[in-house]
Computed example of a mutant assay.
Amino acid sequence: MVVDIPLVSPRKLDQYVARYPGVWIVDVRSGEEYRRSHIRYAVNIPYEPGKEWDLPGEKEIVVYCERGATSMAAVREMIRQGYCALSVAGGITEYKGRNLVFSE
């Protein structure tokens, strides 16, 4: 079964999150990468192929990684498991929004 991956532009991510309050933002990078920088309010759940996701089913989920490939794989699995999820095109590398957090 082929699954089309819904995408959100990194330039429009802040607007998207503001428009859909309660959306879950999931960073699928390693814990170390997350600690260096992440999008404010994101939860860090590192991606593992074949993972059974345990996420709130009633929430829309926005997923990002470093450049977009891993988040697309994670979203593909989430959709197959019945979640409403989309990937940030280009990942955190392309995100220049006001909610970017860097570690001290």
Rank of each mutant, 00 (worst) to 15 (best):
V43I: 12
M78K: 04
G22H: 00
P56C: 12
V28S: 11
G57A: 15
E48T: 15
L55F: 14
E77P: 10
D54P: 01
L86V: 03
E60R: 02
R98S: 08
V101Y: 05
Q81I: 05
V23Q: 08
E33K: 05
C84V: 06
Q81W: 12
A18D: 13
V88W: 00
V88S: 02
G50Q: 06
W53K: 06
V2L: 15
V75R: 05
C84K: 07
N44G: 11
Y83G: 06
P6F: 11
W53N: 08
P10L: 13
L13P: 01
A18H: 09
P6D: 12
R80W: 10
A18M: 14
E77Y: 02
K12F: 07
E60P: 00
V62Q: 01
V26A: 09
M1E: 15
T93S: 03
E94V: 00
R98K: 10
I25G: 08
P6H: 05
R76T: 10
V75W: 04
E58Y: 13
S30W: 02
W53L: 12
G50K: 09
Y34M: 11
A69S: 09
R98Y: 00
E66G: 11
Y95P: 00
A73F: 03
V28G: 11
V88I: 05
P6R: 04
P21Y: 08
A18I: 05
L13A: 10
V63C: 07
R67D: 07
R36W: 09
K59Y: 01
A73K: 09
C65T: 02
A89H: 01
N99W: 04
I25L: 15
V23S: 14
P10A: 14
G31E: 13
M1V: 15
L13F: 06
D27V: 05
V62P: 00
R98A: 05
V43T: 13
I79M: 06
Y41H: 13
S30F: 07
V17H: 03
A89P: 02
G50N: 10
